[in-house]
Design a protein around this nucleic acid. Structure first.
Length: 704
RNA sequence: GGGCGGUUAGUUUAAUGGUAAAACAUCUCGUUUACACCGAGAAGAGUGGAAGUCCGAUUCUUCCACCGCCCACCA
């Protein structure tokens, strides 16, 4: 008899929550509570989602892939740990709360540091559950009892320890550097936290008189400079920054300016003599080939100034207001307002040669969309030379294998050119730099770098650390390859002596239908929760993995979820049929089936169809195993789908309607439920329960 | 500017040195031991363009075009 609860269509809503609770209650997500003797271990760290975030398709892909691996290893008898966590997410975290407060008309500075941080923690305790619950919805089987937060006391200890370690090695230093400064966030940000937008602007050509007697004397008398022989023309998009110029630079190979190198020009308005220097970074073909050098407000100019020992004049402060150094005309005004003033003044002096329309890229803060102004600032740096070598070594000698292989070279190339890491941020939310009197906090990636061992209790010598480090696997998006993966590798080498994971798997990027990157701000993202609501979690997992074939990109296609939903229904109904064919429930463990499952099914009794399906099952099982071990999840799923639908359901089940071998169909069906479980855990667990309520599928023996 | 990847039926993808496969969509027929979220079948591309290697290329090489991604950055 078909059990009453078996309707003719699968309803994920009736199943998913119930099944997830069963799993949680069983304790099997924790390696400590797994049954049997498990000598082999398998461990993975979750890439901790931000407290600000809600689930996006990238999370679904990433965590489904790990879940497939973890569920299979668990069924294969490994002592399996998947450790979840959340990231405090530095700027992004702070901005989320600031934004929330601003709705109530409150600013961060109104509250003060302490009060604001209270708000941050309130936010954290509220939102950590939101994202973790979303992960549960897609069936993530990680060990929630070990959930870590990047600002947990234990992890803070790890960070202190690491910082002091580096400090004692003299790898941490304080230096002046032009950094990307967000005036709104009030902090320096990394290159990766900026986005460039193409904008129409102007290119101003400005005459700088040479410091030859006649010209400079005329200038000092307020007369107009004249003649092309006693000027040098520079081109700039930000004329107001000229007030902080300390040199004019040309390319050493540029014959036009050869005789001017070593001489001086007079900086208009400021009436300051500045040298004309030669530097290889100058592009002869751009503009006039002569560049004004503003070391305090431009990254390239700063580097030039380091090479030539130029002074650095700060004319814009941290709030974007012109300083006294900028001179009387501009002091106290916003930088933007001064552009007008400077241009007007140059016009009066007759020093403005021309203004051209010009399209260029302008940097904006990715987190708050404010314009980025490069600014000289005191920051803490971590020396990268030795650490980068450690990471390169670990990759080259395969201590960590990068998959797909092509990223190996990309990563090594980047590590070879790694600049020292600016580890300080002018934020309130984060780990305070452990030096007295220091107000800055550490870059959020400083904690992420220690994640694989800090989560296991380091620097304490815990059991977990001994058991689960190094981990077996990590997966990440390719754009955080160097910002995260590389940093974990060198941190692992430095502090643990071993690279933190054997495999670093760079997963595909999910693009939208148009083949472009999904972006929340552009509204081109797809909400996984809506998809789950519509098709069920198994179907969404199916859909995303089914599309994940050889390529590095997945062009999102909702049809695949529909296919997944139909497939779930197919599995459901095939199970109904098998149950009917068995004429009720089978107690698998107590039946002959257990013995027969080792394929002691009597050969003489087998029909051709039986033989064919058993053979097909054997081949499919072997191939699926092979593919999962190679992280080719999409191909494995295609194979299972095709076999289940077109060989098992379309052909074998039809054949069985004429002549039934109960043992064979049961064996095939049960094995398929097991093989499908990592991909579609909810429905397979639910259906497994129809056969045997004594145990859960999640820990059943995996078919080999 | 540097690097990487893609371009195959209407769509999303697969495959192969010997003239291409699947799913969805379309059309036709069928469906009383699971499933209309089903079954059987049909039609539909000669694999972006050009050249080369080869008996033979969609598959290898080169160039071009277009699309996308990453990195750097434009004074």
């Amino acid at each position: 008899m078909i059990p009453k609860e078996l309707n003719s269509a699968y309803d994920p809503k009736k199943t998913e929550n119930k099944i997830y609770k069963l799993w949680e209650k069983s304790g099997y997500f924790s390696p400590d509570k797994l049954p049997g003797k498990r000598t082999k271990k398998f461990s993975v760290m979750m890439a901790p989602p931000n407290i600000t975030g809600s689930l996006h398709m990238g999370h679904v892909l990433e965590n489904t892939e790990v879940d497939i691996l973890v569920r299979m290893k668990r069924m294969r008898g490994f002592k399996t740990l998947w450790l979840p966590g959340i990231d405090h997410a530095g700027i992004a975290g702070q901005n989320a709360v600031e934004k929330e407060l601003r709705k109530q008309g409150i600013r961060r500075h109104d509250l003060g540091r302490e009060k604001f941080l209270e708000k941050m923690w309130e936010w954290k305790s509220k939102y950590e559950h939101v994202i973790l619950d979303q992960l549960k919805k897609i069936g993530v089987s990680s060990d929630w009892s070990r959930t870590r937060f990047t600002m947990d006391p234990n992890i803070n200890t790890a960070i202190q320890k690491a910082f002091i370690h580096y400090y004692k090695k003299d790898w941490i230093y304080r230096g002046e550097r032009v950094i990307n400064w967000c005036q709104r966030c009030g902090t320096g940000i990394s290159d990766l936290e900026m986005e460039y937008k193409e904008e129409k602007g102007k290119l101003y050509h400005i005459k700088y008189p040479l410091a030859l007697r006649p010209a400079s004397q005329k200038l000092q008398r307020g007369e107009q400079a004249q003649g092309d022989n006693d000027i040098i023309i520079v081109a700039t998009t930000r004329p107001e920054t000229m007030l902080g110029d300390t040199a004019v630079a040309v390319n050493p190979k540029d014959s036009r300016y050869k005789n001017l190198v070593g001489k001086e020009a007079v900086l208009p308005i400021q009436n300051r003599k500045i040298p004309i220097i030669a530097d290889i970074s100058i592009d002869m073909k751009f503009g006039t080939g002569a560049v004004k050098v503003t070391p305090a407000h431009d990254v390239t100019d700063f580097e030039i100034s380091q090479r030539h020992n130029l002074p650095k004049v700060q004319i814009i402060n941290e709030r974007g207001i012109m300083t006294a150094e900028a001179g009387k005309i501009c002091e106290g005004f916003k930088a933007g307002e001064c552009r007008e003033k400077v241009i007007e003044k140059l016009g009066e002096l007759g020093l403005l040669q021309k203004i051209e329309d010009y399209t260029h890229n302008v940097a904006y803060c990715e987190r708050c969309s404010a314009k980025i102004e490069p600014r000289l600032s005191k920051q803490w740096f971590l020396k990268m030379s030795e650490l980068a070598k450690l990471a390169i070594g670990a990759i080259k000698n395969k201590e960590t294998i990068i998959i797909p292989k092509k990223w190996e070279r990309v990563l090594i190339d980047r590590l070879k050119n790694e600049r020292d890491w600016n580890i300080s941020r002018q934020l309130w939310w984060g780990h305070k730099i452990p030096i007295e009197g220091e107000n800055d906090v550490l870059d959020t990636w400083f904690s992420s770098a220690l994640w694989p061992f800090a989560t296991l209790g380091w620097p304490k010598k815990t059991k977990d650390l001994k058991n689960y480090y190094p981990t077996d696997f990590i997966t990440s998006a390719r754009d955080i390859l160097n910002i995260w993966i590389a940093k974990m590798i060198f941190s692992g080498k430095e502090f643990m002596g071993r690279s933190p994971f054997k495999i670093a798997y760079i997963h595909a990027t999910i693009l939208n239908k148009e083949g472009k990157r999904m972006s929340k701000s552009l509204g081109t993202g797809v909400d996984p929760l809506e998809l789950i609501e519509k098709y069920g979690a198994d179907a969404v997992r199916f859909g995303i993995i089914y599309q994940n074939l050889g390529n590095q990109d997945i062009r999102f296609n909702e049809n695949a979820m529909i296919t997944g939903k139909k497939f779930a229904n197919k599995i459901w109904n095939a199970t109904r049929f098998v149950l009917m064919a068995q004429n009720g429930k089978f107690e698998i463990r107590n039946s002959k089936f257990e013995k027969n499952s080792k394929l002691k099914i009597k050969n003489s009794k087998l029909t051709e169809a039986d033989k064919k399906i058993l053979n097909g099952l054997k081949k499919t099982t072997a191939e699926v195993n092979n593919l999962i071990e190679k992280y080719e999840f999409g191909k494995a799923l295609h194979l299972l789908y095709d076999f289940f639908w077109h060989e098992y359901a379309d052909v074998y089940i039809e054949a069985v309607k004429k002549q039934l071998n109960r043992e064979v169909i049961l064996k095939v069906h049960i094995d398929l439920l097991k093989l499908l479980h990592p991909f579609m855990p909810f429905i397979t667990e639910e259906l497994w329960g129809m056969f045997d309520k004594k145990g859960l599928l999640i820990i059943e023996k995996w078919p080999n």
